[in-house]
Design a protein around this nucleic acid. Structure first.
Length: 607
DNA sequence: GTAGGGTTAG
């Protein structure tokens, strides 16, 4: 058991980690118990038949729980606070967090303060809503009320920190509770592993896994990984392209007597599809079915998506028929995925037909269905149709998202309709939508590419002033615009400001700058930047090589091009079609260049 | 009674 003092110490340790929120009004109803109104705890609770069924019937949904909650509030005498936890838990499981907060507020209004289980539910709720500051405040309330935060409390806090991208803080919090003698369990580790994976640190997660498996972390408590824990880690590894590691973990799990389920198989199949190993994915899928594990709608959706991305929409459509025959009901994701596949292939009419047939096939469309089709129309430059669909969705009361606007803005800029783009952008706030990073990148890029560089700069400066934290993607858009407009001085100035703006130049940033410098005839600077990016741990790709080689080629510096070609070959980079145009150009300039080209070792055929 | 996992659109 966790001693009260250690839990309190952990709590005070965390309060230095996270600043306390200022939303006192919102919380006071939960924290401060009104005087002379202790929580009722009658021993003779009236047994409510609905509540009984809540416990026994797993199919009870959040709606029934809310109804039950209302009737519980009406009871005289009121039921015990703890008896509310079942209904709260049901609504929490359904992820109806807004409803949950409403319920807690209602309880507080009638002087029913949640017990520490209820407060744990509330902490998890705020963490899920990415309001971890409030989560910590509720934990303060747990202490104030004389309860102990337990490992469930801390696991929810760690999740909240992870969801707000505060992985460092999450790790620190975990270290602190371990030092204080609170033992993390497999769910705590799973939460952290998930947080690490989702923030692009799958390899760190893997190292952590090795450490805890070896008993190096966790105060000598035997670590028992679970199926879900393994699935989390395998998924994280696969999403970063480390499918081989994922496979190893899959086998390790089986070696420990944990049988993979439909999720484990699905995760690994998805991973194989991501790296393009469709054959192995198929093999695994067959193996799974042979083992008697039924693919479900998610499995089918992933397979349909993989086929679509491979351009095999007919096979994907066949899979939709197969799942229906097998009695697996397709959901909106199934239809949206296939529609997007058709759009990617330019089969916009097939996408439209599927869109129109959804209702008849027993599946209502959703916002994503509209987004997919609008995007399809934008991509084949049928802006009229796209805008028509947008109007239709509004008239049918579908709520557009920032993505809807981003899709349409992209389409409008691509067609040079800057005025329409401006007008649409101004309408976002009418729909209670906040532009996101992608919106700003689209605007910056769109203005730059439509001869409105001034407006892009103006927008960028406005963003900086507004306190919005511009990211490297936003900057890359403006950098590219500045470079292409020949404003190398301004571009260089912005590029050099990256560190003080808290940004790390990406591969794209370097390629944009190298391209700009080359076009401006500043080849030495371009070459230096190329060398610098390597030093800073940003490996150039084929595009970077091509960009620089094109620059040297245009300034007739054949030896430099050859040198770069050799470097590419050393790294087993396969030249692409663009590389070929450079070589051809070089040869056509002067026959004598061919003597340099003989020096190039053969490119390996290894992909 | 409360905490952890796989799928779609920009």
């Amino acid at each position: 058991m966790v001693s009260r003092t250690s839990a309190r110490r952990a709590a005070s340790a965390t309060s230095t980690l996270i600043s306390r929120p200022s939303q006192r009004g919102e919380l006071s109803t939960i924290f401060i118990h009104p005087r002379n109104a202790p929580p009722s705890k009658s021993k003779t609770q009236p047994q409510n038949p609905i509540r009984k069924s809540l416990k026994n019937d797993h199919k009870i949904n959040a709606h029934d729980a809310l109804t039950e909650f209302d009737s519980m509030l009406q009871m005289q005498p009121p039921p015990s606070v703890s008896s509310f936890n079942t209904v709260l838990g049901t609504v929490a499981k359904a992820k109806k967090y807004k409803d949950l907060i409403f319920m807690f507020n209602r309880m507080c209004e009638v002087n029913l303060l949640p017990d520490y289980i209820g407060m744990n539910i509330l902490i998890n709720c705020y963490s899920e809503l990415k309001r971890v500051g409030l989560s910590f405040a509720i934990m303060g309330g747990i202490l104030k009320r004389g309860y102990n935060p337990n490992i469930v409390t801390f696991t929810s806090l760690i999740k909240g920190l992870c969801l707000e991208n505060k992985i460092g803080d999450a790790v620190e919090l975990l270290k602190k509770i371990i030092r204080l003698g609170i033992h993390p369990n497999v769910k705590t580790w799973g939460t952290l592993v998930n947080g690490l994976c989702r923030s692009g640190n799958a390899e760190v997660a893997l190292r952590l896994h090795e450490e805890i498996s070896n008993g190096n972390v966790g105060l000598g408590v035997k670590f028992k990984p679970s199926l879900i824990y393994y699935n989390t880690l395998i998924d994280g590894l696969c999403k970063e392209g480390l499918v081989e590691k994922g496979k190893e973990l899959f086998l390790e799990m089986e070696g420990k007597g944990i049988s993979p389920d439909v999720v484990a198989y699905g995760t690994l199949i998805h991973g194989l599809c991501i790296v393009g190993d469709w054959e192995k994915g198929k093999e695994l899928f067959i193996g799974m079915v042979d083992r008697g594990i039924r693919p479900n709608v998610v499995t089918f959706n992933m397979l349909i998506d993989a086929l679509c991305k491979e351009g095999k929409t007919n096979e994907a459509s066949g899979l939709l028929d197969l799942m229906i025959r097998r009695g697996e009901k397709p959901d909106s994701i199934t239809f949206n995925t296939l529609m997007d596949g058709y759009c990617l292939e330019g089969r916009i009419d097939d996408a439209r037909d599927l869109f129109l047939s959804m209702a008849a096939k027993g599946q209502e469309r959703d916002v994503v269905s509209y987004n997919v089709l609008i995007n399809g129309y934008c991509k084949c430059r049928k802006l009229g149709e796209a805008l028509g669909l947008f109007k239709e969705m509004l008239s049918k009361d579908y709520k557009p998202t920032a993505i809807t606007f981003n899709i349409l803005l992209t389409g409008l800029f691509q067609k040079g309709k800057v005025d329409d783009a401006r007008e649409l952008y101004s309408k976002m706030k009418d729909h209670d939508l906040t532009p996101n990073s992608a919106t700003y990148s689209i605007l910056l890029d769109g203005f730059c590419k439509n001869n409105c560089l001034e407006e892009a700069v103006e927008l960028f400066r406005g963003l900086e002033k507004s306190g919005y934290k511009v990211d490297s993607l936003n900057c890359n858009c403006l950098l590219d615009g500045l470079c292409k407009a020949g404003k190398l001085d301004f571009a260089t100035e912005l590029f050099e400001k990256f560190p003080e703006m808290g940004m790390v130049p990406t591969l794209f940033t370097y390629s944009i700058m190298i391209n700009g410098l080359c076009k401006d005839g500043q080849l030495e600077k371009a070459n230096n930047l190329f060398l610098e990016m390597e030093k800073r741990g940003c490996a150039p790709d084929v595009v970077t090589f091509n960009t620089l080689m094109r620059g040297f080629c245009n300034s007739n510096d054949a030896p430099k091009v050859v040198e770069l070609l050799q470097k590419m070959a050393e790294r087993n980079f396969l030249p692409d079609a663009y590389t070929a145009t450079i070589v051809v150009d070089l040869l056509s300039k002067d026959d004598s260049y061919s003597k340099y080209l003989e020096l190039i070792p053969k490119f390996s055929n290894k992909a």
